[in-house]
Amino acid sequence: MDRNIISYFFLRLIQSIFSILGAVIIIFILSRVLPGNPAIAILGPKATPENIERVMKEWGLDKNYLEQFSIYISRLVQGDLGNSYIMGISVNKLVIERLPASFELVVFAFIISLIIGIPLGIFIAKKHDSKLDLIFSSTSILGFSFPTMLLGILLLLFFGLGLHLPVGGRLDPRYTIKVYTGFMLIDTLLNGNIAAFIDAFLRIIPPALTLAIPLTCLMVRFTRNSVLEVMMQDFVKTAKMKRLPESIVMYRHILRNALVPIITIAGLYFAVLVTGDIIVETIFAWPGLGRLIWEAVTLRDYMVIQGAVLVVSIIYISVNAIVDILYFYIDPRIKG
C-alpha cells in the first residue's frame, strides 16, 4: 500500500517534470511565432526595418532561435527568468510582484464559495427530491452559465455606483502601506491600519464575487451530488439502522467520504483560477498575473510571456499533481 503510493508519487513527479519541460518548449515556440516582435510593438508606425533591426540586435533577438533558447534555458536552470526587453527589469521581480494579487483574489473567492457552497450543498442533499432541491439545483446551473465579462461589469457598476463602495484596484492609493507579504489584506493588518484593511477588503469583494458566483454554484452541485451518492451507500444505511444520531451519521460517515471528491474538484478549479482571469483583472484594475501575461503578449515581450506563463504552468501542473496524489491516496483504485 505505502510502496504503491510512493511509486505513484514518483511516477507523477516525473510526469510533471516532463509536462513542465514540454510547456517551456511550447511557450518558447508560440511566443516566437507570434507575428511581430517587441521592437515593432514599441516603435509603432515609425518602425523602419533599420530601426527594428538595431533595437532587436541590442536586445539579443537577432540571434537564431536555437541560440536564444539555449541562453534562455541556461539562465532558467539557475532560476532566472530573464529580463523584460521593454521594461528592462527582471521577470522574476515582475512575477513576484503580480503573483500575490492573483493568489489573494482567488483564495478569497474560494473561501466565499466553499463557505457558501458546501453547507448549501449538504442542505440540499438532505432535502433531495423536494421542490427546494429542484429550485436550488436549477439555479446552480444558472450560476455557471452566466458570462463573466458581463457579470464583472455589472458587479462593478452595482458596487461602485449603486452601493457607493470603493472599486478598482487593491487599495486606495492614498494609503501608504509597507509591503511584507504582498497580500493586501494581511499587509494592511500588519501595518496596523484598520481603515486601509477595510478599504482593501471592500475592494476585493466585487472581483472575488465575479469569480465566486460560478464557483459557488459548482460547489453546490458537486457537494449535493457526492453527498447523495454516499448517502445511498450500504455503510450509511447500516449506520442509520444502528440508530446512530443523524448528525453523527451525517458528519462522521457521510461528509468524511463525500468531501474527498469535493476537495478534488475544488483543487482542480483552484489550479485553473490561480493563473489569473484576464477579463476580471482588467475590469477591476487588478494587477494580477493574467493581466501581466496579456500585456506581455500585446507587446511581444517574449521573456515576460515565457516567464509568467511558465510560473503559471508550474503552479497549475503542481496543483493537479497534488490533487491526483491525494486522490490516489484516498482511493487507490483510481489510476491516472
Binding site: 457598476l157 455606483l161 470603493p166 478598482g168 484596484g169 486606495d172 493581466r291
Partner: peptide, 18 residues
C-alpha cells in the same frame, strides 16, 4: 498615478471622486 486598464472602471473612479 493609478492605472486602470479598463476605461469604464476609470470613469466610475472619476465619478466617485476616487
Amino acid at each position: 498615478i493609478k492605472i486602470y486598464p479598463d476605461p469604464i472602471t476609470l470613469r466610475v473612479a472619476l465619478e466617485k471622486g476616487e
